[in-house]
């Protein structure tokens, strides 16, 4: 699943004569990678303390059937922490960025759906969640924030090679 698809029929694989990635971009990539790691780490830790609260944050979207509410609410913080860990060490950055982008797109879709249906909830992105007063919804800010995070993931999808990463160490 990582990188371009393997083509067994290709007799002459292209050698590593790719366009070299400038050094500044690798350093910027490290900053982006660690930035996204902080986002996932923060989001995961904020959701982990109270399982019932995490489940209610999921339930409040009124999208998933009751049977999936708890598994998703319980697993999500651990998934986020795993992504944070992988980003910190820089292992499989392109794949991790891809999973991050998918997750963020799912979150944005969920928030947009709640907004469109007129439900009044807190996104529960960084803990909390559940129903709030109509005057306290912040859908636009939440979507913009997640879009910002999505840009970080997009950068890493485009330029996964970064300094101080296990990926770089394995390739050398």
């Amino acid at each position: 699943m990582a990188g371009p698809a393997v083509q067994p029929g290709d007799p002459v694989p292209t050698p590593s004569a790719r366009r070299p990635v400038p050094v500044w971009s690798q350093w910027l990539g490290t900053a982006v990678r660690l930035g996204l790691a902080v986002v996932w780490g923060w989001a995961g830790l904020a959701k982990i303390a109270d399982p019932a609260e995490a489940a209610q944050a999921v339930r409040a979207y009124e999208i998933l059937p009751e049977g999936l509410v708890k598994p998703i609410g319980y697993a999500l913080p651990f998934l986020e922490l795993a992504l944070a860990l992988l980003l910190v060490i820089g292992l499989g950055v392109r794949l991790v960025a891809g999973v991050s982008a998918l997750l963020l797109l799912t979150f944005i879709a969920g928030i947009a759906s709640a907004w469109a249906r007129g439900i009044t909830i807190d996104c529960g992105c960084f803990g909390g969640g559940g129903h709030v007063d109509a005057s306290q919804t912040e859908y636009l800010q939440e979507i913009l924030r997640d879009t910002g995070f999505l840009l970080l993931a997009g950068w890493l999808l485009w330029r996964p090679r970064t300094r101080f990463s296990v990926d770089g160490w394995l390739a050398s």
Partner: peptide, 20 residues
């Protein structure tokens, strides 16, 4: 590397459901 990443993610999800 891809396999290792997927294993880490799957382990985290299973751990989360069990632990929580």
């Amino acid at each position: 590397v891809g396999g290792a990443v997927l294993v880490v993610i799957a382990a985290a999800v299973v751990t989360g459901v069990v632990v929580q």
